[in-house]
Nucleic acid binder design. Structure first.
Ligand code: SF4
Ligand code: SF4
Lengths: 133, 133
DNA sequence: GTTATTATAGATAAATAAAATCCTTAATTA
DNA sequence: TAATTAAGGATTTTATTTATCTATAATAAC
């Protein structure tokens, strides 16, 4: 069980855009270079973020991606869900009802993690970004 | 990101053994039947649990698997780690040091989940097991 | 309007990982 | 000795993730 690289790229891109000039769009070319990943692949990932309403894309010369106005509200969990979907980490093959102790424990554990990720917004990162990139 | 089926099988087997007669070993044949999984595959998974010291195997006629004496202490996390390994859910490709906000947030979130899984012992399940299986 | 630039989208390929099977060996009991 | 059962190695199958290729659409600059 691992977070996918796609999630990794999405988080990094969001972090990068958070640090960038808010109104000037950044092209996928540059974003991809920074992360040593192919532009086309990254582009697919960013399109998901666009669809999820976290960033917007400007096509044409000097286009690229930039954060939307609401960027401060976006949580880590939002980003992860936008990329990996929001299905549970655990789905049992039979489902003997909600009384099952396995389900209860694992789902509660997952909820603990999600709670933390939900409470961490992109805006929380602003101050903390000194060294990175 | 999903828990693997192997983990699923391991958890179910532990639950089953917890419910079973403590001293009489249960064969992989029966355990596999219950879970609709191939005996050989399940066997590989259970060997990991044996290596991790959670269950013991008795070979030969009337052999099988049974819990070890310490079974009450075993946590969900122990089982998951025995099967999936205990590497972090997130490993970044560059590592810009411990100040990185992405790492900090994601690893802390993971720790929240693990904490919950660590605190849930097999013995906590004993009372809760009515309907299942 | 034409050209250059940039994102979107679909199809497909390559790489990796997970799940399952097959077959052989070793241990134990009856 | 024969039957039973787990362990282990090698391999195959299946699924998922990652990446590439190519074509289309939108926009800005000239
Ligand atoms: S025992 Fe629990 S986890 Fe397993 S199949 Fe039944 S409901 Fe699902
Ligand atoms: S920015 Fe953080 S998560 Fe990304 S590579 Fe650097 S240390 Fe790792």
């Amino acid at each position: 069980m691992k977070f996918s690289k796609a999630t990794d790229y999405a988080l990094h891109t969001m972090l990068f855009l958070t640090a960038a000039t808010p109104d000037k769009p950044v092209g996928v070319q540059l974003l991809a270079e920074k992360q040593k990943v192919s532009p086309t692949y990254l582009s697919k990932i960013l399109t998901k973020l666009v669809k999820a309403g976290m960033i917007e894309s400007i096509t044409g010369v000097n286009g690229g991606y930039r954060l939307k106005r609401n960027w401060g509200d976006i949580s880590f969990l939002d980003i992860i869900h936008a990329i990996e979907g929001s299905a549970s980490l655990f789905d049992c093959s039979f489902d003997h009802g909600p009384d099952c102790p396995i389900q209860r424990v694992v789902l509660a554990a997952e909820e603990k993690m999600e709670e933390h990720l939900r409470n961490k917004k992109m805006s929380d990162l602003v101050q903390e970004m000194n060294i990175v990139f």
